[in-house]
Write a protein that binds this DNA or RNA. Sequence first.
RNA 1: GGAGAGGUGGCUGAGCGGUUGAAAGCACCGCACUCGAAAUGCGGCAUACGGGAAACCGUAUCGUGGGUUCGAAUCCCACCCUCUCCGCCA
Length: 476
Amino acid sequence: MFDPKWVRENPQAFDEGLSRRKLPPLSKQFEQIDALRRARIRTLEIFLEKKNKASKEIGQARTTGNHSALEKLMSEVAEAKESIARLENEVKESEADLKEFLAGIPNIPADDVPIRDDETGNEEYRRHGERPSLNFTPKQHFDLGEALGLMDFEAAAKLSGARFVVLKGALARMERALSQLFLDTHTDPKHGYTEVNPPLIVRDEVMIGTAQLPKFSADQYRVETEDDQIRQAYENFELDRNAVLDFAEKRGIEAARAEKKEVLGFVYRPNPFRRWMIPTAEVPLTNLVREDIVDETKLPMRMTANTPCFRAEAGAAGKDTRGMLRQHQFTKVELVSITTPEQSKDEHERMLTCAEEVLKKLGLHYRVMTLCTGDMGFASQKTYDIEVWMPGQNTYREISSCSNCGEFQARRMNARYRNKQGKVAGHVHTLNGSGVAVGRALIAVMENYQEADGSIAVPDALLPYMGGLKKITKVG
RNA sequence: GGAGAGGUGGCUGAGCGGUUGAAAGCACCGCACUCGAAAUGCGGCAUACGGGAAACCGUAUCGUGGGUUCGAAUCCCACCCUCUCCGCCA
């Protein structure tokens, strides 16, 4: 979310930043919305001042018993109040317009982000290790897993539909082992992240804070109790009927009918009852500082969590349908840092090396990509992806994504910090990164450590967590 | 789910329908005293928005949203949240 003041004062920088995202210039539109808003505020405040003054004088006239003045003042207030009611609505409308406008605009890329159209424009930043040389044709993880009898997509479909998986036995254990290894690595003083076990179900505002909402509601799972639904239906009925009537009055019944869909709330609208399943632990971890003023001495704050993540994967129809690469539910160890504006750049590099560390421990070959402007996420100003080598697929696959969001999310959350002088010094910077995706790490291990007979060797780093098991072989 | 209590500034905590943006204390900052420090004394110290080159002025904010009133932190209603007890529950 942008600072309106900044946009007002730097329209050209704003447009230039948007153009790097392949977006049209929006400063003109901003200027319009903002100017109207400010004009409305000004007129409203003139009337408010009038009312306040008169009210105060009424108090004085009462005590002095000046009845003629009293009556004049009363009528003055009554007059002002008429305008105030109308102007208040206008200001509210303008403020909502501005907020909606700004909430839909993505973060501006950092200066050193390559300006390209799509993922083919990403640039390699560095790489580690080499592709393993196998003297047989490597299989994909789902072939391996199904042959081992430890990965069951049919059972998962029976339970939950497509894009779910059931892991069993040594593979289930290996997933847990990976989580443990990652958490142990990041909570070690060397990395210094504090382990957190956050809620997996969160409110609207929290999803807005990290920018999953309002724009990406279709990618999220929402949860409601029956009670919630009843209350919501009731509220919607009241709200929407009024909204439709209001709309019809202003622009005619025909227009109201045509735009009924929007008016009736099929578009996103904040709702106090509804909750969302987290698509990543970034959401609860980052929002831990929402509406807070953090002491600078506590920064950087580093947090890690191992959680299931839930994604509707809307718009990914037909993409990566085989195997457990793209699931509605997966496990991920997440890293989140809260920093001062000065610290965030270094912290971003540091976070990346923390994520890389676990892949090094697993002996996996990977490359780090700097995402170009066309491939970056909505809230990010700079993102590194780590892509791990998958022999079975004969390609690199994203296993981690580390983003510096600057103050973009902090503004939405109103997360600020207090400097050493005790003054509120501004918004914090927020960073998040996978450290790393556990489900994908599992399939990377499977494909990289597979043997000719379809068994899978356990990487050294996982041995302590596997209860003595050195190799995963077919059951039964 | 039932019964009750409560949500006030960075924190603690007062608050009568009318100079209350809000007492007091703590914390913090400045000054004085001191060789220095502590202690003490004096002064300062909320945020956002709007206007202004600035000094400064205006407006809003006492959980949120409505309402009553000329005027609401104070009265009324709804909701959210926290706490205590009971019930249910992994």
